[in-house]
């Protein structure tokens, strides 16, 4: 049963960027599993490789980046000849990124809601044009039917007056409306996995709350899995069930939301949690918000051993700066990449 529910497996994924200045190991051996209908949060600072992981899954890593190693497998449902639905494993890493098969998966099975709704819609095409295009790419429908579906989808994401908004250009819409439009576009082909890459970072707090609520509601309604990428731990707590913490291209800790927030193991996770303010924190004790000391290391020259050790308060000399830390299981479905728990 458990394997039946598998949706996406990522094994030892390595995506490197080959630049003049050197090679950036944006994703350096990431493993993850997403089950059907699961909401997975991916947390980390900017530049930790979370967005590149998402783009690797979609096979749209921009040049000069390249997947150099690893497997990504999608278990997709298919209608077999006798009318039963069967799951079929497709290894995305073996496909031509611009080929027919990968394109039929992109947008249909796995969809993306990008970071900046302001910039993510073409300024010279109407919203409808861009959504209808997505529908007609993956479904055999006439243009009129596609338009109907687009309007329906816009209605579903709470767009006001969808039959009129559909003919608007992006610059005529507010940020929140554009992001609703982007979500409608992502959902119009009923993907089994929605990758939301910091979908609310560019929005104000009220709009953010609305969009988060919308995504939560839609997940329940449509039963899809969500990979929610963010640097905002608060958003993770609200939206997801399981969390992955990434640092410098590696997964350093994974757990369910409760364990992660109440019993964080990795020094980096702990530091992250200490850096967010909490209601009811007593200021009289002169407790300051802590920041993580030091800065993100130069991506061209990663430190040897554990890449967090120069900033880690608990680093052990001769160990952390020498050896790659092991990935240890510390509880049910709670894993951490740190020597402290060996």
């Amino acid at each position: 049963m458990a394997t039946d529910q598998l949706l996406l497996e990522v094994k030892d994924l390595k995506t490197y960027f080959f630049l003049e200045e050197g090679t950036v190991r944006a994703v350096d051996g990431v493993d993850m599993v997403i089950r059907r209908g699961q909401a997975l949060g991916v947390v980390g600072e900017s530049g930790c490789g979370k967005s590149v992981t998402a783009r690797s899954i979609l096979r749209i890593v921009p040049r000069p980046g390249r997947i150099v190693q690893g497997e990504i497998t999608l278990h997709r449902m298919r209608e077999s000849k006798n009318g039963r639905t069967v799951t079929e494993a497709v290894r995305l890493t073996d496909l031509d990124p611009m080929g027919v098969e990968m394109r039929s998966i992109r947008g249909a099975e796995i969809a993306l809601v990008p970071q900046e709704p302001m910039m993510s819609l073409s300024p010279v095409h109407t919203l409808g044009n861009q959504i209808i295009e997505a529908i007609m790419l993956h479904q055999r429908v006439t243009k009129a039917e596609a338009r109907e579906r687009a309007i329906h989808m816009l209605d579903l994401v709470g767009m006001p007056r969808p039959s009129r908004t559909i003919d608007r250009y992006p610059h005529e819409l507010s940020g929140g409306m554009r992001q609703r439009g982007m979500i409608a576009m992502a959902l119009c082909c009923h993907p089994s996995l929605l990758i939301a890459d910091e979908p609310t970072t560019a929005l104000d707090v009220t709009t953010e709350a609305q969009i988060l609520k919308l995504i939560r509601g839609l997940r329940q309604e449509l039963g899809m899995a969500i990979m929610y990428i963010t640097h905002n731990l608060g958003v993770v707590a609200q939206t997801t069930e399981d969390v992955i913490v990434m640092y410098m291209g590696k997964v350093v800790e994974e757990a369910d939301v409760d364990s992660l927030f109440h019993d964080p193991k990795h020094p980096y996770t702990r530091a992250l949690l200490r850096s967010i303010p909490r209601l009811g924190q007593r200021t009289r004790e002169r407790q300051r918000l802590e920041s993580i000391r030091g800065s993100v290391p130069d991506p061209y020259a990663l430190p040897k051993g554990c890449s967090f050790h120069p900033r880690c308060a608990q680093a052990i000399r001769g160990v952390c700066d020498r050896e790659e830390p092991p990935y240890v299981e510390v509880g049910p479905a709670h894993k951490v990449r740190c020597v402290l728990y060996c």
């Binding site: 979609l58 749209i60 921009p62 990008p114 910039m119 819609l121 073409s122 993956h138 576009m185």
Partner: peptide, 9 residues
């Protein structure tokens, strides 16, 4: 927006 279009397939 180019990436969006690419992500559409």
């Amino acid at each position: 927006y180019v990436e969006t279009a690419r992500a559409k397939g």
